[in-house]
Amino acid sequence: MSDPRTVSLGLDTFGDVTHDAEGRPLADAATIRNVVDQAVLADEVGLAFFGVGEHHRPEFAISSPEIVLAAAAARTRDIHLGTAVTVLSSDDPVRVYERFATLDAVSNGRAEVILGRGSFIESFPLFGYDLKDYELLFEEKLDLFTRLLEEKPVTWRGRTRAPLESADVFPKTENGLKAWIGVGGTPESVVRAAQHGLGLMLAIIGGPADRFRPLVDLYHRSLASFQRATPPVGVHSPGHIAETDQQAWEEAYPGFESMGNTIGRERGWPPYSRMRFQHDVGPEGAVYAGSPETVARKIADTVRTLGAQRFDLKFSTGTLSHDKLMRSIELYGTKVKPRVEELLAE
């Protein structure tokens, strides 16, 4: 079981384009400014991490997370700032490292990067990459990025970008850059994270948490076989918090329905329904929505089940308004966090 003194609670957002009180979508610019305000509140209520996802589609306003995080860094003091996730496959590892090393400097050592292949594919044609190279792009770029983390001159050759010969990259960080791999549930991705000695961030967006316990066990076995240290295990799951279960569910459902149907039309899923939502917020689902007590108990159960060291709540889904997101953050920090710590200490 995880030591409650080492379990930290964070937040993730994709910068979902929210609606105003009249139900009209906000401008992307307003959504981005709101995300910075959300990070500031997260810091004020004592949360450990604020993550911003990278997307290149109309439902999400943030395509350059590091710039948003740098703005948040200037207005926060303690909270760690990172991505959820950075799509490394369609970016350049050298530039990713340089941007996050710069963020680490302006935030006084609070930068983290969560690397992933991306569950959306818009960035690949946008930046000129062929989807048939999906696996190769991530494998090679991750190999190069982990070498850059050592902050020494790098010699590297591959098929997906120009070679490097004793290349030194700047700026250097003061204490190193913390990096994770975001994993959707494939054993190959888990072994890859262990091979490179990076933290494992499990994106659990469907089903019960105990379904992922074999992957955590595989991760620890793989770390041992590669003779690696033991980086942390984290969980990323969606949710929403309000004063009561019913209020949280009523507030959250329209956003989940909107996003579920938008993505579902692209991927051939059935229409999202109230029945599906009520299952997802229940014990066997991956949505952490409800009162502070309900959400705290579900998080504590997940942390115990997986031996996780961090839980990141993806607090924005669909069109849920900024004021409700702010209230959810406030309750998460002031009510859920201390209650999770109490439950884990019992």
Results as ranks from 00 to 15, higher is better:
128 G>W: 06
98 E>T: 07
230 T>S: 10
132 K>D: 15
335 K>G: 12
211 R>C: 02
21 A>F: 04
214 P>D: 03
137 L>N: 01
342 E>Y: 04
130 D>T: 05
120 F>T: 14
151 E>K: 07
174 E>Q: 11
319 T>G: 05
205 I>M: 07
110 R>A: 04
220 H>Q: 13
101 A>M: 07
116 G>T: 05
251 E>W: 04
341 E>M: 08
1 M>A: 15
333 G>N: 13
52 V>F: 06
22 E>L: 08
155 T>A: 00
337 K>E: 12
261 N>I: 13
265 R>M: 03
181 I>N: 12
106 V>P: 08
288 Y>R: 03
68 V>D: 01
31 T>M: 02
83 T>V: 10
102 T>Q: 08
135 E>R: 15
285 G>N: 04
175 N>H: 14
337 K>A: 15
199 G>Y: 02
115 L>M: 06
90 S>I: 06
19 H>Q: 14
334 T>D: 14
302 T>W: 07
219 Y>V: 03
127 F>I: 07
88 L>T: 03
64 S>R: 04
213 R>G: 03
190 V>F: 06
85 V>D: 08
76 T>N: 07
100 F>N: 12
201 M>Y: 00
215 L>Q: 07
116 G>F: 07
30 A>K: 07
5 R>M: 09
4 P>W: 07
245 D>L: 09
172 K>F: 03
109 G>Y: 06
294 T>K: 02
30 A>D: 15
1 M>P: 10
35 V>M: 12
2 S>R: 02
108 N>G: 06
100 F>G: 09
282 G>N: 03
164 L>N: 08
205 I>W: 04
63 S>G: 14
312 D>F: 05
207 G>A: 02
184 G>K: 00
187 P>V: 04
299 I>C: 00
6 T>Y: 09
72 A>W: 14
3 D>P: 10
311 F>K: 07
326 M>Y: 01
234 G>M: 08
170 F>K: 14
88 L>N: 13
235 V>A: 09
25 P>C: 11
194 A>Y: 03
179 A>Y: 05
257 E>R: 15
247 Q>M: 11
299 I>P: 04
82 G>T: 05
23 G>P: 11
126 L>A: 15
52 V>P: 00
330 E>V: 00
321 S>I: 08
147 R>Q: 15
326 M>H: 13
301 D>S: 14
279 H>T: 07
